[in-house]
């Protein structure tokens, strides 16, 4: 088992996922299986291989001109929000 129960609890917390006591063993097993599967790659010697951030070798980021072309459509966009007040998205209180 490459992942411990504590590892999975931490990952779940960081991802804001709630996992019940009953579900936990299954998550520990299946997540470990995924990690172990990928870990097979470690058996290959990659000492001479440069890390690759993207599979699109030889391509670089296209840039766009600094122009404003988006119109205000917030009323349309906010239809999907659970609650809106005075143009603001309303969420449970967050304060430092």
């Amino acid at each position: 088992m490459s992942l411990t129960r504590q590892d999975v609890e931490k990952i779940a917390h960081l991802a804001r996922l709630s996992i019940t006591e009953q579900q936990m063993p299954a998550y520990v097993t299946s997540l470990s299986n995924i990690v172990d599967f990928v870990a097979e790659l470690s058996s290959i010697d990659t000492g001479q291989v440069l890390p690759m951030a993207h599979p699109l070798e030889g391509q670089s980021q296209r840039l766009r001109a600094d122009e404003v072309s988006e119109a205000d459509q917030h009323v349309k966009y906010q239809v999907n929000a659970p609650e809106v007040q005075a143009g603001l998205y309303v969420v449970p209180r967050v304060i430092e």
Binding site: Q85, G87, L88, Y89, V90, V91, P92, R93, I95
Partner: peptide
């Protein structure tokens, strides 16, 4: 946070 009871507004 002003003017919203127990809620925050996001801009």
């Amino acid at each position: 946070h002003e003017g919203l009871a127990n809620a925050s507004g996001i801009d």
